[in-house]
Each structure stands twice: as C-alpha cells, then as structure tokens.
Design a protein around this nucleic acid. Structure first.
Lengths: 218, 218
DNA sequence: AGTTCGCTACTGCAGGTTGCAGTAATTGGG
DNA sequence: CCCAATTACTGCAACCTGCAGTAGCGAACT
C-alpha cells in the first residue's frame, strides 16, 4: 500500500466511484496535494480489490460498461490505520528552478522565459482555485459536510501561489539588473541578499512594491 | 533524454564528477529544485555515456575504483538545446495536504501531528539553507562565479519555507477552533474564508500576528 | 443521412524512477 | 584489534507515467 493507494481509498470512503469518475475527481481536488497520472487512477482501485479493500461491480450503461468500486470494511480499517503513520516529507519538483540554477548555460532571455512559463502554469492553477471557491459560494460543495477541509486546503494553495508569484516578480527585477547570466559571482547585490538570507530574513519584505530596480551594486 | 538527464549533464558541465560525488552534490544543491534518488544519480551518467554525451574513466584510489564522468562536446551541445525547450509545470507532492483533505477520517490530533511533521521536515531544509548562506559568506561558494545563481535560488526557497511555516501556524489556529474534524461543512468562519479566497485575497494578511483565536463563527 | 468531434471509459506496454538489499574497501575511534 | 561510519557502487522488484490504441455515445455540422 502506497500513499496513492490510501488517496484512492479515501475517495472510495466518500462514495462508490467508477474508474473514470476517480480520474475526474482527482483532477479537481487531489491534483494539488498529490498529483498522480490518470493511468494510476485506473490501476489503483484494481489493486485495492485484489487486497480486499474494495469490491467491483460492472454497470451496463447503454452498450458501454463501467466498473464501479466500493470500499469494504477492511478498506475502512486500513484507512484508519494510515492516519496514525508518519507523514512523508513534501517533495517539490520545479524545473524552472533547475533551469535557474544552471542559467549560466543560456541567455537571460532563456531564464526569463522559463520564469514566465512557471508563472503561467501557476496562474492557471491559481485562477482555477479562485473559481472553485466562487462555485462553493454559489452552488455549494459536492460533499457539503467536507467544505471546511477543502477551504482550509485552498488557503494553503492560495498562499503558495501568491508567494511564488511575488517571488517571480522579485526575481525578474534581479535578473534584469544582471549584465549577463554568466560569471557574476558574489556581486555587491548578491552579498546583500546572502547576508539577509543568512539571518533568515526575506529580501522581498524590504521593498514590497518598488521591486523594479534595487541598488544593483553597492 | 529526461529532465533528470539534463540535470546531471549540467553538473558535468561544471567539472568531472564520480558517481558518488554526483549523489553528494545532488543532496546539497539539486534536491530542492529537482529531487531525485541516489540510485538515479548512479544510473544517469551511464546513460549519458551510452548516448555519447559523456565519457567514463575509472580511477584507482587505493584498492577501490571509482568511475569519473566527463562531459563531451555533444553533451554541451545537447545542454544548449535544452535551454530553449518548454519548462515543465511544477509538481508539488505534499502528503500532509492529502491528509488534511481527508482529515475527517481521523482525529484533530492526527491532522495536527501531520502538520507538525510537515513543519519539522520544512524546518530542517529551512535551517540547512540559512546555514548554507552563512557558509557562502564565510568560506565562499564551491563555484564562486555561480554564487549569484545559488543565492537567487535560495531566496525562492526561503520565501517558500516562510510561506509554508506561516500557513501552518494559521492552520493550527483554525483547527483548534474546530469542535471536531467531521461534518463541520460551511460554518460561518469557513464562509468568511471562502469569500476571501473567491476574491483572491489572503486570509493570513488580515491578522498577521494574533492568529491564535480568530472569531470562530460570526 | 453521413461524418466528424469531443466526451466517456478504459487497457497494454515501454521506459523512467525509487527503495531496499547486498557487496566490498577505507578510515577513525575506542 | 574490532566496530562503526563513510565511500562507492550494482541488481532487482515494484511503482508510476505517457502514449497509443480501442470502442461506444451524443451533438453539431455538411
């Protein structure tokens, strides 16, 4: 049983779902906490059936059949057991940051484009969450009794998205001040930043608005 | 060629490394942008050799031998080509958030413990980065001409860590106000939060310090 | 009436990735 | 002299992803 198994099991504990419905639900909610491929969302419930944590029955709808998965008592018990296990460390894969670390292999345009791509990917998710919150106000939550959980999670997402967007703006300002991506090393400005970070202070808090052109080298 | 291949190739472009050194270097720098297993860091350079992007030669050091990998011209060219490709969307795996989404399967203690575990995992990384910045000031950077890149990346990490830590404090305050993890649904407080989020406003900005006990239901 | 497009509803498979176990030599401390 | 930690890997099972392929359905367009 992997964390992904428990993620699917937790969904099955809400109500029975078909494989396809699981993929759709994962796209809406799970994706931001535990991003998994569509493929896995089809495979995982099959494994749960093998382990006795769920049952399948095929429903005929027109000429098409679909597999409906239902949690068993053993499944509920397994889910309960999971709650008391150690939570895995978070894992953040951000290719744009990898490209930043090795930005000296390319031009300033390359890094800036990479940051733009990051910004647009984040922006999409950001807008999706804001819209979702609107839909909770208008039409309510698909599982009304769980609204408090979805909304608290949404506060996390909004904080992360805003923090990333703020940082991207800041980074743009810094990179714009570079004469090149290469061989800058410990410039005056970099030293200022390093000193702030070594004291665990945020360089963004200093000039919250006028991030356009901070003193480049002093 | 995967992004991980390019990550290793980028390291090889700095200087030749042995497999073991690659794992150690990845632990220090890459981990926070592109977390990969030790196992992969041993396999990846072998693949690069097969593709002609690197060469190996075994050095004898005592009775032990180690494989030293060096980038080829083809490798440098491939790396240059990568710079102009589309950056992948970020991918954030945070089990603690999955557990929050399904917190109604367990007790308040379970969610709070999960948040504590998240906090401690983040805290470790947070401290490591601050310490690293101190070492840049004292002893310098292992590749001095690349200091500006490492430091700009570090500003990102510090922003993320601080944002997560702030949110965890906020979430603790919210959860403490819950009478239970289950069946709360759209309480007054949740509606307040939903409204803020639907307007893309941060609920943390409201009460930056006194996050202990916000008006629970009004 | 026929065709195409998009959605529903999956499966197979190759290849990327991880964690663990196992091997073996070197170094430093008690 | 022994033991633990570090160096320096490899093999393997199991996990996970992306892509291609299959197939029925409904609505729109021609």
């Amino acid at each position: 049983m992997t964390t992904s198994s428990f993620a699917v099991l937790a969904l099955l504990d809400l109500r029975p779902w078909t494989g396809y419905e699981l993929t759709q639900q994962a796209k809406r909610s799970l994706r931001y906490a535990w991003p998994k491929s569509e493929r896995l969302l089809y495979s995982e419930p099959k494994k749960l059936v093998e382990l006795g944590y769920a049952t399948v029955h095929t429903e005929e709808q027109g000429g098409r059949s679909r597999n409906v998965y239902t949690i068993t008592e053993d499944g509920t018990a397994a889910l309960g057991g999971w709650m008391s296990t150690r939570t895995q460390a978070p894992r953040l894969e951000i290719e744009a940051m990898l490209r930043l670390l090795f930005a000296d292999h390319g031009s300033e345009g390359d890094v800036l484009r990479s940051l733009e791509e990051l910004e647009s990917d984040i922006g999409e998710h950001h807008r999706a969450i804001v819209e979702l919150m609107g839909s909770y106000l208008d039409g309510g939550h698909p599982f009304p009794e769980r609204t408090h959980l979805s909304v608290l999670f949404a506060t996390f997402q909004i904080e992360m998205f805003k923090a990333m967007e703020r940082w991207i703006e800041f980074a743009r300002g810094e990179i714009d001040d570079w004469p090149s991506t290469k061989d800058l090393g410990m410039t005056g400005r970099t030293e200022v930043l390093t000193r702030l970070l070594a004291e665990d202070r945020s360089p963004l808090e200093q000039a919250p608005v006028l991030s356009g052109r901070p003193a480049a080298t002093r």
